[in-house]
């Protein structure tokens, strides 16, 4: 077996790509979830104008392919005088796209909270904003967490689209080598393993988070 191909060429390149992938995934995952919570809350409890805007936003970002969104951000925005480097364009695209999906999980979570708690909070003088921040959203996030975790895992995999706008991450590094040496099967199998490991770690992390946020009455984790 040609071990030098792996040890000297493929693995170092993929490790380099992995670091770039992680640099893409962490801010996109965190900011995407935060924006998703805001968008989901606006869609459920927002002022009618904001609700419409948030619904429109979700419709656009869930309704168009992520590749198209990335192209618009990277190649389209310069026409408006806004220049994003490849990394920034990718992160912005991932945040916008994943928050649109998160917002739907959050909306489901919000709708599952009994309206009586809103009344109870307001009867004590909570403003609508404080009711959301302190009472409703903390519960909705717990309810939405399994769905949001799903979206984060999905983000890990669609982060591979960044290489299309020249932000060379894990898949990009691999593809360059695969093309140059025409060894697609091995290269992409190794790439697959990298993602599998990444997802396994994140899944475990999300499980830990669910346990940490666990409260009696919010379902149980086996």
């Amino acid at each position: 077996m040609d071990t030098a191909f792996y040890t000297d060429l493929l693995i170092p390149a993929l490790n380099r790509g992995l670091i770039m992938s992680i640099k893409l995934i962490i801010p996109s995952g965190i900011l995407g979830l935060m924006l998703g919570i805001v968008v989901g809350t606006l869609r459920t409890f927002g002022h009618p104008v904001l609700r419409k805007a948030a619904n429109g936003y979700t419709a656009v970002f869930r309704g168009t392919p992520l590749v198209v969104q990335l192209f618009m951000l990277y190649f389209g925005l310069p026409n408006l005088g806004i220049y994003l480097d490849a990394y920034s364009a990718a992160v912005v695209g991932f945040i916008l796209c994943s928050s649109a999906y998160h917002s739907e999980y959050i909306r489901g979570g919000l709708l599952s909270i009994k309206h009586g708690q809103v009344l109870a909070a307001q009867s004590m003088g909570f403003s609508t904003f404080k009711t959301m921040c302190h009472i409703i959203v903390p519960q909705a996030v717990r309810r939405a967490l399994p769905g949001c975790g799903n979206e984060i895992i999905y983000l890990i995999k669609y982060s591979s689209l960044a290489y299309i706008i020249t932000c060379i991450e894990l898949t990009g590094e691999g593809k360059i080598i695969a093309t140059r040496y025409f060894r697609f099967t091995e290269v992409f199998m190794v790439i697959g393993c990298y993602y599998l490991v990444l997802v396994t770690f994140v899944t475990a992390g999300l499980h830990k988070l669910e346990e940490k946020l666990q409260i009696p009455g919010f379902g149980t984790i086996g």
Binding site: G116, Q117, A121, S123, I135, Q139, I215
Partner: peptide, 14 residues
């Protein structure tokens, strides 16, 4: 200044 008690309690579940 006006406390309110509801039929189904409406405690904050979290």
């Amino acid at each position: 200044q006006i406390g309110m008690i509801f039929q189904d309690f409406n405690l904050f579940d979290h």
